[in-house]
Simulated scan of single mutants.
Amino acid sequence: MTDDIHRLPAACAVSNEGPLSERQHLEPPHSYRPAFDRDRARIIHARAFRRLAGKTQVFTHRSSDHFRSRLTHTMEVAQIARTVAATLGLNEPLAESLALVHDIGHPPFGHTGEHALDKALRPYGLRFDHNLHALRIVEYFETSYAGFRGLNLTLGVREGIIKHSRDYSAVEHPELAEYFLDLRPPLEAQLIDVVDEIAYLTADLDDGIEAGILSLEEAASRVTLFRQFWEPMLAKYPDARDKLVFNEALKRMLNALVGDLIAETARRVESAGALSLDAIRHHPERLAALSPEMEALRVEAKAFLSERLYRSPELAEGRSEAEKVVATLFQAWVEEPSRMPAGQLPDVETEGAPRAVADYIAGMTDLYILGRYEEFLDSER
Rank of each mutant, 00 (worst) to 15 (best):
R381T: 11
L370A: 12
T154H: 07
F246M: 07
F67K: 03
V223E: 00
E22C: 11
P34S: 09
Y168L: 14
S21A: 15
H111E: 10
R23D: 04
L257I: 04
L370P: 01
R166G: 04
D242T: 08
D278P: 02
L191Y: 03
M1N: 03
A303M: 07
I361A: 10
I209K: 02
A95M: 10
E217V: 11
H282F: 05
A356D: 08
E142W: 11
H164V: 12
I104E: 01
H133V: 03
G212I: 09
T328N: 07
R158S: 01
H130W: 02
E295I: 02
S221E: 14
R149T: 12
M75S: 03
G18V: 05
A303S: 13
L26Q: 11
L121F: 06
D193Q: 12
R252C: 05
A211K: 01
R68K: 08
D206M: 03
H282V: 02
S276Q: 04
S31T: 09
A13R: 03
Y360W: 15
A13H: 05
A146V: 13
S97N: 07
G150N: 08
D196N: 02
R42G: 00
L275M: 10
A240W: 13
L225D: 08
L309I: 07
G371D: 15
T60R: 00
L8Y: 05
P9W: 12
S97V: 03
S165P: 08
Y140G: 13
E27L: 12
G212R: 05
S221G: 04
L132H: 10
T87I: 01
N91S: 12
N152W: 06
D260M: 03
